[in-house]
Design a binder for these strands. Sequence first.
DNA 1: AATTAATAAGGACATTTGTCCCGAAGCTTA
DNA 2: TAAGCTTCGGGACAAATGTCCTTATTAATT
Lengths: 191, 191
Amino acid sequence: MIRINENLIKYLCDLVKSPNNNLLILQSAKPTVKIMDQGSKINSVFVIKSGIAKCYLTQDTGNDFIQEFFGEGEIFGEIEMFNNELSLCDVEAITDLVLFKISKYNFFSLIANDKKFQMLVLESLASKIKYKALRHSYNQSHTIDQKIINLHKQFPEIMDIIQKKDIANYLGITKRSLNRVISDLKKRNLI
Amino acid sequence: MIRINENLIKYLCDLVKSPNNNLLILQSAKPTVKIMDQGSKINSVFVIKSGIAKCYLTQDTGNDFIQEFFGEGEIFGEIEMFNNELSLCDVEAITDLVLFKISKYNFFSLIANDKKFQMLVLESLASKIKYKALRHSYNQSHTIDQKIINLHKQFPEIMDIIQKKDIANYLGITKRSLNRVISDLKKRNLI
DNA sequence: AATTAATAAGGACATTTGTCCCGAAGCTTA
DNA sequence: TAAGCTTCGGGACAAATGTCCTTATTAATT
């Protein structure tokens, strides 16, 4: 449920430590701080070094829909670079974050000149697509029960780390339905 | 709702016509023919030159969920190349198709040596992610009414070209619900 | 410590959507 | 042309989910 990308982390850790690095910097953020704002211009690409963030999209209905909880090695801002568009989502820290920040210029320069980085980015895009494909499929053809059991299997501590409202917005359901099903599953000893 | 990628089409049309082309070939498929099989090994990347295909995923529940109706310039098989995995989805012709077919070897060789192609692939991946993000959001926070009205706005002839069952599987609902809402919307003159 | 704000939990009811049917209309093939 | 298959459309009912609202509980602020 929360993906991590060790290869990318490792690669950027090495890069940031290299003595003549001028391509990327480290940055940190406390919980509730927004790193990216839906609809705003993006000048940098970010990669999470440690911590968890939520990436969500606010609809015309006023509802937030959480695209993904970002874990270590997750990249964001890159979609907007390639599409040359304003930010699609908000990204907000849930726990303390440490981030790699790469300027637009440096990002494209790495893509163009660094085959290893290029391939890591292609892989991370492919992995995002796969994640989204499976998630949307799963969401549409399983009941709330099944989704919560599944979530709980993959990430048992989720209820302690992530707020109920956010879990509901991740599943695309209301808080009421979430509570109802959770209490039911507890009664049946399924979670 | 059906994306098209003119830049990629144009680029491959030029490439296939170049006198010493040995990188890609053209292939055609009749309706109901499967070009890709969920769970099978992928040896080529495809790009749709003309026609419409459906890309769907069969769940453990037996339900099919349609990821996308592919239009001109849509690429598929590339995810599996980058992730080095078996096919995630089935892809099946809905109308007569003409396809560009690029072998795995040639695909990676183009990515490595052809900056223009490389950027076209990065852009198409980014566009897929954006499409999926918006679609899943929209799906989760709108009623069936709204989804059908929206679909009808974007693609009025959809009901003539695509079967009811497929539309239902695209929206993640049952045929019964689809019919109920359609007849209701017709009564209210909304479609 | 007292007050306010935010989150969690759930009751009662309405609405939406799914399930399980069945019959009609269109195609396909013997 | 008849028989068989597939798609379409919808009735009746059941189940899942949302809406609205209220009360605890926890966290934050003065």
